[in-house]
Amino acid sequence: MDFSLDGYRVFAATGGVPFDSAKPSLILLHGAGMNHTVWALQARYLAHHGQNVLAVDLPGHGKSEGAAFSCVEEYAGWLLRFLDAANLKQAALAGHSLGALIALETAGKAPERILRLILLGVAARMAVHPDMLASAREGTNEVIRCMTSWCHARKHHFGGNRLPGMWMLGLAHHLIARSKPGVIFAGLSACNDYKGALDAAGRITCPTLLVLGDSDLMTPAKGGRELAGLIKNARAETIPGSGHMMMSEAPDATLDLMRGAF
């Protein structure tokens, strides 16, 4: 469904169930260079099991208009305005990678509005390889090749998708390749430059779940566990064999952990 915010269209998938602001709401936030479809194997289930799901396309991503931001704090401000636009006083947030930093920053900024937090593939610092940043800045394909490779555990470079017939790396590659010019660089820059995680973590009051992959090269699980230690009411769960893209690499385990957070 479409929302209007700051003069731009914002798209959010509802998991196949009509939006109902009276139900408990869950906002799903994707990572850099991606869009709402990364939640395909979680959003639909959660929407059909009591959650009012809004899997948003961040500005400039997917079907949302406007320019992508290159700063996590700016996204957090946007997200709070989005909650207003959706007429949601409070909501739970689940974010992956860049989306996790946005969720973290938002929950730190307005703890009274965030009921629960699920942070997937996250660490307090997300330094991005300089070659990736350079390629993203120049708009070459190397950044897509690097993201596709490093986002997946090595075992999943051989496949074994739970979704029959789907090639995980190809799907990630073609999803990222659809990004508009400048969007990947903006997203990676936002991750690379964000230094507010420790402050935000200290202000979070809601129950928080961190979902980590034990083979995550982008945000190693150790970093996620350290972040969990800084949040008052947090627990960290690690999925064996998963890399950074746990929503596609381990869709059932990820979904079950997310379900358990409610």
């Binding site: 496949g159 074994g160 998708n161 029959p164 017939g165 789907m166 090639w167 190809g170 073609h174």
Partner: peptide
């Protein structure tokens, strides 16, 4: 869908550079 057939589908997706088969 079938697990054996799915291996073939993934393999050919990978070899052709697609998203799925």
């Amino acid at each position: 869908s079938n697990p054996t057939v799915s291996v073939l589908e993934e393999r050919l997706s990978a070899l052709e550079g697609g998203v799925g088969a």
